[in-house]
């Protein structure tokens, strides 16, 4: 009963994470300018990876491994946010216009 439950939860979290990655990739390809693309990319990285880590952590069965995964996720969060901030600031300073609906 319990293993089946854990497997089901893992599956749910990993699939949900994959959905966020898919949505983020579609956004990256389809959105009109660099700012909106960054928005979709960071959403995918942060939430998608977080959900996948949760799914894999409950599968690992070890607190230490789960903590390592959480740490990896935190680093991705911080570096993703910093990179997105730097790219968007540079784009804004170098005069890339923000997309507006006609």
């Amino acid at each position: 009963m319990i293993p089946a439950l854990i497997n089901a939860a893992s599956m749910f979290f990993v699939v949900a994470g994959a959905f966020f990655f898919l949505a983020g990739t579609v956004g990256l390809l389809r959105f009109p300018d660099v700012y909106t693309r960054l928005h979709s990319l960071t959403k995918a990285d942060n939430t998608g990876l977080g959900l996948m880590m949760v799914g894999l952590a409950i599968q690992s069965g070890s607190i230490l491994v789960a903590l390592k995964m959480a740490l990896a996720w935190l680093f991705v969060l911080v570096s993703g946010a910093t990179a997105a901030h730097l790219i968007s600031t540079t784009a804004l300073k170098s005069g890339l216009r923000i997309w507006r609906k006609e």
Partner: peptide, 22 residues
């Protein structure tokens, strides 16, 4: 190599401070 606005960014400086020990 980065523009002035980026190299002086407090976000980047904080990021490096956070990252360096790790």
């Amino acid at each position: 190599t980065a523009p002035e606005a980026v190299s002086g960014s407090p976000v980047l400086a904080g990021f490096v401070r956070l990252l360096a020990p790790a």
